[in-house]
Design a protein around this nucleic acid. Sequence first.
DNA 1: CCACGGTGAGTTTTT
DNA 2: CTCACCGTGG
Length: 791
Amino acid sequence: MSNPLSLDDDYQPRPGGLAARARASVSGGQQANYLQNLNPEQRRAIETTEGPVLVLAGAGTGKTRVLTTRIAHIIATGLAFPSQILAVTFTNKAAREMKERVGHLLGGVAEGMPWLGTFHSVGTKILRRHAELVGLRSDFTILDTDDQIRLMRQVIQAEDIDEKRWPARALAAFIDGWKNRGLTPDKVPAGESAAFANGRGGKLYAAYQARLKQLNAADFGDLLLENLRLFREHPDVLQSYQERFKYILVDEYQDTNVAQYLWLRLLAQGRRNVSCVGDDDQSIYGWRGAEVDNILRFEHDFPGATVVRLERNYRSTGHILASASHLVAHNEGRLGKTLHTEDEPGEKVTLTGAWDSEEEARLIGEEIEALQHKGHSPAQMAVLVRISAQMREIEDRFVTLGLPYRVIGGPRFYERLEIRDALAYLRCVANPTDDLAFERIVNTPKRGLGDATIEQLHVYARKARIPLMQAARQMVETDELKPKPRSTLRELMAAFGRWASRIDGMKHNELAELVLEESGYTDMWQKDRTAEAAGRLENLKELVRSMEEFPDLGGFLEHVSLVMEASDNDSTEKVSIMTLHGAKGLEFDTVFLPGWEEGLFPNQRALDESGKAGLEEERRLAYVGITRARRRAKIYFASNRRIHGMWQSTIPSRFVDELPESHVEVTEAPAHYGGYGGSRFDRAQPFSGSTYDTPGWQRAQARSRETGGGGFGESRQSGFGGGQARKGPLLIEGELVAKSSVGSDFSTGDRVFHVKFGNGSVAAVDGNKLTIDFDKAGRKMVLDGFVQRAG
DNA sequence: CCACGGTGAGTTTTT
DNA sequence: CTCACCGTGG
């Protein structure tokens, strides 16, 4: 990666660069070898270079391949130089992969693609070149979420708003949302502005933006928003980029938010050679501002667009693909694709009910061990959960079994406390105007520079309109500070002066080490006797090590603010545990999908907050989950799960009913499970085995034989058994499930007993679903099969 | 400045 | 239940 801070023009390719090599590789006249082994649709997606192109690429249809080959093709045929192609992705990982693959296709390293990157990195690059046009300097700092919140807290305090009632986090969420939608403070709808701090939301947003400018800083949202402003207020700048980018490519188009969409549209309106690749069925980020509509209205925005559907799946077996397709077909708002595979049907998708989440974890553990015995690698298995809270039980079980696993997601390397602290030190050294960084470390390690001193600094700095560090330097020369903080601060400032003077003189990673050493930061952790301290020191070492890859301190800091990634150099074979969101774009031979229960998945909150749109997004998430599997997809649900510490009786997800029966095998949990080491409640009422032995299960089974549908305790309109796609809208709000036509033997007022919740009285009856006021556990909704008459 | 207890909340997450 | 956060008291 070239130094991202350098502003020199890379418009012309270097001699002997990628383009030259690429042209050489196709000069023989025969078909370019990168076009071999592509199916006709893929070729169309690649060879339609001119005009707008929308590629609807289903899961596993070779989306990345099309994108990378398209770039290679444009370069190889001499249509554009690498520096004239804009290619944007969402994640650094995707960008890196693309870079590698393009390079591979053209037989070289794709160093000549300066405009291949994430939306944010490309946005930053453009913004740095024209920073002064939007009130920033080209060396502006990029704030992370932490800095953002702290800054907002200051803004809220300055406005004298009760921080308890209106937390900075909430404001951050609002502002983020507005920025995602491309809204500057003056454009915020009054109704939304009113939603925070009695109508002061918009005002706070404006104040926050003003503070950012003062600090010469931008947050993530600004990286795009300020680009929009730049393009709108300076048409000449926009035009220069429109001319430069002969071809524009977009990955994961279904995930673009409004700001990204507007940005793309502005840039693409020049030459109109824009191609977007995406899959509406995999849009799972609506909650953070992604607009599926962007993909749905592509043809409207770019009339005459070529639409290519990639429907041949190269990843999964027949049963897996059929299950996923059938499930997602229940969504109404979709463009519709029919995926097919030439692979064998393979193993059916399995569906297993467990008594509770502990048993579920046990079953998954057993299955993994069984597969391992058959020679399957743990690295080719993944457990995909809906929410992180599900991970713990799975992990606990794996620990017990000694199964190697890796949790993917969670706190990233650069989000760790010690890394942020260390970076704050470095930021102060590199940029003495970085107030937020200075505030972060001025008293870390503890040096007796407490709130009172900081406040004095602030007052001074505000009055003189200078950065905190400069204020500190001046103040230690006065007698405004108490003697002790004064001398401490003087020492600290002297140290910063010393470090800053060595930026050019020594290697930046050595300087970092020196700073951490002399500041007492390393020492602080060495003295710390807590369990994490050793790991934190290790992380600090890793940080210093990773700096070697960058040309200088500035380059490194730019990298960390945009590329928040943990280095994972652990190559041992492990089962992956991650959220469904985290699994997008990945694939595994075997995928375990636990927790398919109403309320959890689909998630009740998604339903409550977003209604039908929320349900459909949840369903797409299920689709993403199943389609991660190459050979085996294993779905689980439990009848009881502990939520917020309380055991809840749960019913299987409606998605279970929406799977096609002919592609799914319902597996019985082995009978011996209930007996051993079971949950603490197992002992309360011994039962011979799994859910399948409970009266409720048996009754559900009997019912499903009668009706040919349902089967899992709740028979809904569509058929798991019937194999028919549902018609008409789904019932989603207000009720956990649709009404059942099957009545219950219980009636209001009956005294009943539940194995987990104890005694209670029936408050309401809805089909076979009872609302019960339990004497101890409170009001719950349970299926009648799980209770018996008390007495 | 730290340690403790009380309180409240509790999807999904990248950049 | 469990974690994070805040406020208080030593």
